[in-house]
Design a protein around this nucleic acid. Sequence first.
DNA 1: CAAACATTTCGATAATTCTGAAACTGTAAG
DNA 2: CTTACAGTTTCAGAATTATCGAAATGTTTG
Lengths: 101, 101
Amino acid sequence: MDRPDVKRLARAFKALSNPNRLQLFVNLLEESRLDLARGRTHDCFLAKLLGGLDINAPTVSHHVKELADAGLIDTERDGKQLICSVRPQAMAELRALFETR
Amino acid sequence: MDRPDVKRLARAFKALSNPNRLQLFVNLLEESRLDLARGRTHDCFLAKLLGGLDINAPTVSHHVKELADAGLIDTERDGKQLICSVRPQAMAELRALFETR
DNA sequence: CAAACATTTCGATAATTCTGAAACTGTAAG
DNA sequence: CTTACAGTTTCAGAATTATCGAAATGTTTG
């Protein structure tokens, strides 16, 4: 195994350590998987990610920023909406840590 | 994908979100892999896990407890030493989340 | 331009977390 | 029994975090 970059990993895990933020991330993951299954590029604006979450707009904005700063997702502005997508690189790095062997 | 247990996952991620605690866990992971490579059961007491860490005993104790409470590691007392091992179950659950597809 | 919309920034507060000092417990060795 | 060892508990202070309300920004629509 390559020596993991503990500092960066810790940053990612911190981003995923808040239940609301993690739920946001999981929702995005599932949306991504749906779209990938349809062979389409992923495309998901914020409001779509709030499934079942009871938090206000400022908090959502803060959480999204945190996920982005941790390198877990990419964001891009499209008109008045914010498009989110998971970063495959980050996924790979995290998966590697938990690989058995 | 099965619906992930967000609350429990968040707990695990929180346990890994502190750099010192994550380093502890990574050290244990690497020790485990070494021993598994030798076809032996894993066996690791705390002092062995402190590589490069600059934290005092009470803090270490606290961090280990946190990792155990989060279900990431098992601990067992042997004489005056504490034996730690990673929980394969937890590893699998985390790995699943980052699986692509 | 005005109104509606999606998100962000700011400021403030409550809650949680990290850490070490000091004192303690249980075990092994002399 | 005494000492040393490995780790734990308790306590308290400093630092970080989560959250919201209010106001602001930038964008599309009428």
